[in-house]
Design a protein around this nucleic acid. Sequence first.
DNA 1: CTTGGACAGGTGT
DNA 2: TACACCTGT
Length: 713
Amino acid sequence: MPVARPESSGARIIAHVDMDCFYVQVEQRKQPQLRGLPTAVVQYNEWKGGALLAVSYEARKYGVKRFMRGDEAKEVFPQIELVQVPVSRGKADLSTYRNAGSEVVSVLSRKGRCERASIDEVYLDLTNAAEAMLAEIPPESLEAVDEEALKSHVLGLESKDGNDAKATVKEWLCRGDADHRDKLLACGVLIVAELRMQVLKETEFTCSAGIAHNKMLAKLASGMNKPAQQTVVPFSSVKGLLDSLPVKKMKQLGGKLGTSLQCELGVNTVGDLLKFSEDKLQEGYGVNTGTWLWNIARGISGEEVQARLLPKSHGSGKSFPGPCALKTVASVQHWLNQLCEELSERLCSDLEQNKRIARTLTLHASAFKSSDSDSFRKFPSKSCPLRYGTAKMQEDAFNLFQAGLREYLGLYGVKTQGSDYNGWRVIALSVSASKIVPILSGTCSIMKYFKEDTCNSSLKQYPNNFIQDAEPSSPSGSESYSKLNSTELQHEFAGEAACVQRVMDGLGQQEVKSNTWNEQDPSCSTEKHTPQSFSRGTPQLLLSGTESHSSLDQNMPQREVHWEDSSMEHIKLNSKQHDQKRSALKDKGTLSSLNFFKSRNLSGSSREQEHVETTQNTETSLALELNLEQRLQGGLIAQTATNSSGCSSDQVQQRSVAWDYKIEDIDPSVIDELPKEIQDEIRAWLRPSKRPNIVKRGSTIADYFSPSKSRLR
DNA sequence: CTTGGACAGGTGT
DNA sequence: TACACCTGT
């Protein structure tokens, strides 16, 4: 439920930037011959041509809509270009879009506080920049205004007869007698126009934007004129806007809450909400939501732009609709392994690029009983402490699944034995990693040590010297049988950490972890599937790790590991591209979005696909390092949590307190495995009286991108 | 918009 | 905290 936040005192300038049909643009950049053509991005195309995820504006003109199937789109407009979402490990892989989103963020975060709201949306708090501009070079002092800014839409501003729209906008932007808030908005308009041009130059993506005094209004405005345009909401036009705005269009009211307003209160537009007192709304919807509703009816929303450039969690999931539903343990385990592989890879990238680790692994699943269409669909989600290393994640995910399964089936009194789930079908699986925290600064030296020592391969291969005992029998076999609930997993984790050698063993296992499985048809084109195609192989339920190494492993697609898209690299990359394009475009003056590509073509420059190969950590070294890191931080954070009696302001203090108490929780054997200089460093941390290196890192990404800090000692 | 899927974020308990 | 549920693209 939404919660009301108090509106801050002074006027803020907030922008919402929304990429235009983002996936399409990413694919068009990759294949420039698609530019300007009616294009859509589909994922999976075996069944009815796949689902459309994004549709170019050219294609929308011909009636192609999101949520159509590929076949449907072809019927509506046969010439449409359909591009498929990349697939790895048999599932959609959105990483190219995530990375492209990071490129955009790296540009947009330059002028103010920046919040990455989704893969293709960003909020900016430009209050300071706007105030600075107003103080130094107020719009009224300008003789020429940026072309892109002149194309802005000003809500509530009618174009005067005989005057073209740009002249009217210019007059509004440069009014000397405007309200102070409108003057700040005018500055916001200029800043956002420039940022959008910068995004275009550096990423080749167009975007639309809304500029207003709060997030809610900015978000509303960004969608009003697309693509490649921006809309500003002057304070004076807020009431007019909301009066006629259907409640369902408002963020947070698109679902059940909005329906309830319509049905229970007869509210059709946001303006209709004005008729209800705050008390009345609180009566119906609770204190928080009631106040929130009362506020938004008046265009009030105090929600701050959070300084966050990175996601708070990572997830990997897949659904198995209709005939694709999973029936066997082996198939569930196979797909969990795939999902964990992807998740593990993304976590490793996050660690290297952003120096963060995730602390919680969560498994979600959905299931139904084939004989009963009305049966439960929800499977309890389960979580446990996250252990780095693909094999460990796979093991833990499977144990979580089994824990959930047991609870789930227990409610039905169903015995869990035999080769399948007694008529139950798994229709969705996902694993996610959350509670992502920055690693301690001192660990950078450890990172550096392992990087220098072991990171000589960009392929994910395990150096022989680290795989000392890759025996096939695994702790996930009979041992895991007894670890069926997350509580036990936690105890195992917190109490008796594995030694370094064991980490290595664990990593070795992932090569033999994959089981015999079936139902692996990634295309889900299973209308033709015969029942026996699902019933080959009958692994024992709850015995996960003991099957012999399946020869199918060799038939699996090669893992594609694209490392070139780190945010950090993009910052370097972008500045390089920026320079190149600056020179390519120099003397052309300000370019509007519409002219941009034309100008580029005229200048003959085409985007070079620049790939930055970065030296990568092997997973082995990461796991070793994280084993240490987690054992250090594990005790630390647990203690911090129990100690935090109300005051959470000074984490540094809390951490040092935590150290005092939890030193004994750190397994000394880990430290002994490390080289002498690292040992010394860690022991220095362990002496709170000296504790020279316990420094809380800043929480913004800028801190991690700072070379002096990320490479320190 | 009912019949998507793969995410991500948030709140309530 | 763990988990259910809601909302968005």
